[in-house]
Design a protein around this nucleic acid. Structure first.
Lengths: 219, 219
DNA sequence: CGGCGTTTTGAGAGAGCTCAACATCGGTGG
DNA sequence: CCACCGATGTTGAGCTCTCTCAAAACGCCG
């Protein structure tokens, strides 16, 4: 594809990463006094537009939202595809306008947290502010880890990286969802992941269970 | 490499991304009352270790620091390579222990911000807390944009994505530093970037200046 | 002028993507 | 209970893309 694929839409041919592994439920960071309003979106509907005034931040409850920026040459660039559990436009709390478009990629449900209420609460209650900061900090770590993963080119090393980071007890990884989902999270095709796991098992580097992968220590 | 390269070191064969484009100087988020202590590190020296008690966060002033996690099977996974201007271990403010190793990849200089002083200041001064939150939120946006970029596989689409996001006036991009640096930031080899730019120029998609790239609108 | 790093172009090979076929598993309904 | 069906899991073959190795022009600075 590449050259042929086209000027129209940039970076959307790749599967979006599924919802994040480490769940960060709203209750972990949301000031108890701030109530969220749910809002339903049809596929293709805009949640907000570049340049419009910021009113608050959103949490995706269902479906996916695409954050998109369009340049003057008419080309579109996907900044992020938000899956359920993720928050959108955290930076909007500190900026007067949104700086990208948010479009529902599917029918979706979002929860809206008004900016003024959040900021007031953070000002009133330092603990709430800290909880929010902690959430942001964790998210940064997650993103960094995932970015580093994408810098790894071979499927095998990428799987190794994932296993090393997700081995809860240091050796065993429980695969959440399907291997197909995992492949998307790793930025691989499912075929590539299947092959890689099969090769690693054949080489005695891992052992595979029903929903688990066990790292075999090098002797 | 790949299979042969090996179990020893995962994910370090790739050039680290250079310092971030959008500078976020410490003065933008640092509470004025908190003073930083500089610390010099020799290459290979540890800044902190997994499990050790958190004392604060660091800002890289010079050199690079690798954040690394080691699994029980003895394999190492690089979580992040921090370049000058970046902060390390923001999450340490909200956690009792560090959860990875920080090792100087080169001789380096870091600035240390004590956890207690920062948290106290955030509690005392909501504006300082907000500035810190804003910094974290911006960093999340940056990381998301970069992550989305890495999901794009062809060099051409990746360059398009970068140009769309960095065209200040909507059409012209000023290349900071060398094209070689840009290639590293894009996660491409410099050869691949040169070729891609040459092809795009030949196809009339862009025009190249001394230190600029101009997007040509599609007719 | 002589290095030194960036920019450029060339040729080759490896790795993953794509397309395709098939196996397996779980649920559904007759 | 069994046949059917869809989604997941698995394997095969070919192709395209980038990486790698290599070499040469170009620009800059001492």
């Amino acid at each position: 594809m590449g050259a042929a694929a086209a000027p129209a839409l940039i970076g959307s041919m790749w599967p979006a990463a599924p919802s994040e592994r480490i769940t960060m439920a709203a209750k972990d960071w949301l000031p108890p006094n701030v109530r969220a309003a749910e809002r339903l979106l049809k596929a293709g509907q805009a949640l907000f537009r570049l340049g419009s005034r910021t009113t608050g931040l959103y949490e995706v409850a269902a479906g996916t939202i695409r954050l998109v920026r369009v340049d003057r040459a008419g080309r579109e660039a996907v900044i992020h595809v938000a899956a359920p559990g993720e928050t959108l436009a955290e930076a909007s709390l500190f900026s007067p306008t949104y700086h990208c478009d948010a479009i529902a990629a599917t029918d979706a449900v979002v929860r809206f947290y008004p900016k003024a209420a959040l900021l007031a609460e953070f000002k009133r209650d330092p603990a709430a502010a800290q909880a929010f900061m902690a959430m942001l900090a964790r998210r940064i770590m997650q993103l960094r880890a995932r970015l580093e993963q994408r810098n790894i080119h071979t499927a095998r090393d990428r799987v190794r990286h994932y296993l090393a980071l997700n081995a809860a007890d240091g050796l065993t990884v429980v695969v959440p969802g399907t291997l197909k989902d995992l492949a998307a999270e790793l930025g691989l095709t499912h075929e590539a992941l299947y092959r890689t796991l099969a090769d690693m098992a054949a080489d005695g580097e891992i052992e595979r269970g029903r929903k688990t992968i066990k790292l075999i220590p090098t002797i």
